[in-house]
Design a protein around this nucleic acid. Structure first.
Length: 578
RNA sequence: GCCCCCGUAGCUCAGUAGGAUAGAGCAGCGGUUUCCUAAACCGCGGGCCGCAGGUUCGAUUCCUGCCGGGGGUACCA
């Protein structure tokens, strides 16, 4: 084709299959095809205009008969369309036979991943600040399982630390006569807020709190007893919330669990010569101008959460021998994790641990942006928080009201309202890329229209309704030649791309990719559902034309399977009616 | 001061291994139901992609600086 530059071209392996494969992209507009090869990058090499190259290459291509693609040139792009019926045939048959196993893969087989998420702080109310880690982590766990990983979903409770010193001091000072049997968390919160108010004018309280935590750490029975009471009461409360949200864990543990493992780690670090004492505190100097030293022990000898995270990482390794450990924690803690990971790397280096047993580069902070509320930052200390239960209750109540308006005959109103209200809340946290700060806007979270969870659920219910109304059998090898509209093509493409969306979500540690894929699919289906004939009538899916109806119902079934499975991966329930 | 994240339509956000006229949803306005669930669908208006340079055939995307918002910055987590 280009004999004068053949050597150069050959040397650069331009136009060999792998090279081309790597440069393929997806056209901006799906109508232009499934694959595109921009040839601008070769203009210099070939000393020709992009359009000419594209023309020449496309003209020289011979496509074997069994390969169902057609090639078009558009400016400097070579676009390849996959023959619709081949694509439809392949993906529909696959979906209809595999059902919910469609998109399941084994790329994670034999690999263990720990996903730490939620990790609420005991004795504090479940606020919307914890919503994101809980929802993101729960979905990530499901997504990674789908790809064949051995996943351990871990709730690492914040049940240790100076805050408990504060709580216990507050309780002893002002709370002894409070009845904690009813709504304990709220009462504990009041104490906690009061502590911070009073500590502003009375700094001695902070000292007292530190002392009390130290007593807890060294096992003072009376203090431990109180701590345990607080912990049990709060955990019981959280479990109810998790149940309501449909969030599950494989392991629930907490920082306190590591208490007796601290000393041996600190000894290891000391032995490795990494520690030093600064201003009375035991630290590891990270020799990094960007990072402050990592504190292991305060001047009073009590540990800090960095110490516990370091110990925890090693404990997780011994217990699970993970290939990867994810920490789904807000990005405000990114320095903390950098410090923790660095200390671990330094220790492994100093101890000359064999490469394959090192964990430092298996640890990954999956960070996400803040949940903001108006112009105020939410914080437990100021008492300025939105309770998750309030959010859920409002959403469910609103859902119930809508059902009464729109579908009063529905048998399971309460159950369905719960699915929808919670679906709205869950989706609101996954419809934005995880690093973005999200504003908590009541109006948006309680919106059931547009790009929302209820929209997906509604579409699913609509699909199920069609399947109920169809009295024939659902074929698993439909005559795809009958599905020839623009809408059908778009639906099939999105169905075919669903497994890719799952992989994108896993690669980016972000369920967002699945959420948006489902929105597109639901939109494509709803357009198909409401398409009109040239005469202006609805082009119904179920009609007198039996073969056509059979083919369309097969498509409906495939969409329903994918939306159902996609919602499951997001942790959202898919109602059959609503 | 230093470090990290963010800055795209009135609002909330996509567009991120650099690519084809910058896309959705919400809000606004106007349509669609003798009804396979209108929580839907169609149309309209709406943009110096924070600003200024640089690299490139090509920059919303990469680099540098500045501006604006958020977070972090050793004895909280």
């Amino acid at each position: 084709m280009y004999p004068d530059v053949y050597d150069k071209v050959g040397n650069n392996e331009v136009f060999n299959p792998e090279f081309i494969y790597e440069h393929l992209e997806k056209p901006k507009d799906p109508k232009m095809g499934r694959f595109a090869l921009p040839v601008f990058r070769f203009t210099k090499l070939l000393a020709a205009k992009p359009q000419d190259i594209a023309q020449a290459v496309a003209g020289a291509m011979t496509i074997p008969e069994h390969v169902p693609i057609t090639v078009e040139v558009a400016g400097g792009f070579i676009n390849a369309k996959v023959d619709f019926s081949a694509l439809a045939e392949e993906s529909l048959v696959k979906i209809l036979s595999l059902q919910k196993e469609y998109g399941t893969e084994d790329i994670g087989e034999g690999k263990t991943v720990i996903v730490e998420y939620s990790s609420v702080n005991i004795a504090k109310p479940f606020g919307i600040a914890h919503l994101r880690t809980t929802i993101l982590g729960n979905s990530l766990r499901l997504i990674l399982k789908k790809l064949g990983y051995n996943v351990i979903g871990m709730n690492y409770l914040g049940d240790w630390g100076t805050q408990f010193g504060k709580m216990i001091v507050a309780y002893r000072k002002w709370g002894n006569d409070i009845d904690l049997s009813d709504n304990p968390i709220e009462k504990l919160l009041e104490l906690y807020v009061r502590f911070h108010e009073e500590a502003r004018t009375n700094p001695e309280l902070d000292d007292e709190a530190r002392k009390t935590f130290k007593a807890l750490e060294s096992g003072d029975p009376e203090t431990v007893d109180l701590w345990k009471r607080f912990k049990d009461m709060s955990l019981a409360d959280y479990l109810k919330v998790y149940e309501q949200l449909g969030v599950e864990f494989d392991v629930i543990t907490g920082e306190s669990f590591l208490n007796d493992k601290m000393e041996s780690l600190i000894e290891r670090l000391e032995k490795a010569g990494l520690t030093s004492v600064s201003k009375g505190a035991l630290i590891v100097d990270l020799h990094d101008p960007q990072l402050p030293p990592c504190l292991l022990k305060k001047a009073d000898g009590a540990t800090l959460y960095a110490t516990r995270d370091i110990v925890g990482a090693f404990w997780r390794w011994e217990e699970y021998h993970f290939d990867e450990a994810l920490y789904v924690v807000a990005n405000s803690q990114s320095d903390h994790f950098k410090q923790v990971f660095k200390v671990i790397a330094m220790l492994e280096e100093a101890e000359q641990i064999p490469e394959q047993e090192r964990i430092a580069n298996r640890l990954k902070h999956v960070d996400f942006g803040w949940v903001k509320f108006g112009d105020k930052t939410m914080s437990t200390r100021s008492g300025n928080i939105i309770y998750l239960t309030d959010v859920i209750n409002k959403a469910v109540t609103l859902a119930r009201k809508k059902i009464r308006e729109k579908n009063p005959g529905l048998q399971t109103i309460d159950k369905t309202a719960e699915m929808i209200g919670i679906g709205a809340v869950l989706f609101s946290q996954m419809s934005v890329r995880r690093l973005k700060d999200v504003n908590f806007i009541w109006e948006d979270v309680l919106n059931f229209e547009g790009e929302t969870g209820p929209y997906l659920q509604y579409t699913h219910a609509r699909l199920c309704s069609l399947l109920r109304n169809y009295d024939g059998e659902i074929t698993s090898n439909p005559d795809v030649s009958l599905l020839h509209g623009e809408e059908e093509e778009r639906i099939v493409e999105l169905l075919a791309d669903f497994p890719g969306a799952i992989r994108d979500a896993a690669r980016n540690y972000d369920p967002y990719f699945i959420a948006m894929h489902l929105i597109k699919l639901a939109g494509a289906f709803n357009r198909f559902y409401q398409r009109k004939t040239p005469e202006g009538r609805i082009d119904k899916i179920i009609s007198d034309d039996a073969p056509l109806t059979r083919a369309r119902i097969a498509l409906v079934r495939a969409v329903q399977v994918v939306i159902n499975e996609g919602l499951r991966l997001l942790g959202i329930k898919a109602p059959e009616e609503m």
